[in-house]
Design a protein around this nucleic acid. Sequence first.
DNA 1: CTACCGATTGACT
DNA 2: GTCAATCGGTAGA
Length: 213
Amino acid sequence: MDRALPPDFYDRDVVTVAVDMLGMLLVSRTREGLAAGRIVEVEAYLSRGDAACHASRGETPGNAAMFGRPGIAYVYPIHSHCCFNVVTQAEGEPSAVLVRAVEPCRGEALMNRRRGTVPEFDLARGPGRLCKALGIDRGRNRYDLTRGRGLWIERSPGATREEPAYCSPRIGVTAARDLYLRFFLLGNPCVSGPRQPARKRSLEFQVGTSSVE
DNA sequence: CTACCGATTGACT
DNA sequence: GTCAATCGGTAGA
């Protein structure tokens, strides 16, 4: 399938990939059906100098996917939820982009069935909720995202991202609070984290406009 | 084996 | 804003 982003997309610097992913479509197809959403919030985890990265203390059975080929999924459990990442950069440079939130675009009824009755903007707002809404579980760990079969990322139909990307410290991490590696579309209601008045957003900075041609 | 802990969520003050 | 539930991964005895 040519709609799925190719391996080359993922074989780049993790921050570049993270920002480029904003505005793109994350698509999941299971036996239950198809569900998809526009990516509005991500976080980068660096292969070096990032104490918050799972790979920072070496390879273990649990984080081995991060050491694999760029373009595969890294799905891991936490607090009885799952988080979905895409592996980036060269093999052996264990870095990944955590997808924290998507704006539902297709399969909202299916997502609602999986998540229960919640407002639509809440369906995939947060990494654990996103996995539940899209039916992503640990069976997707190491899944190849470049084939366009059950789980992939594609460019939004005809689309360039028009909104600027903003950055902030990552959410929920205690280590490396000084790294501004969370990227999101400011003001989008599907972005997770605290909803604050504009004047209180002192930790958020614009990082650029769309890098998609 | 036990102990500790977290890239979360949902309920509650 | 705060906090507890909950559970697999990991390290250590």
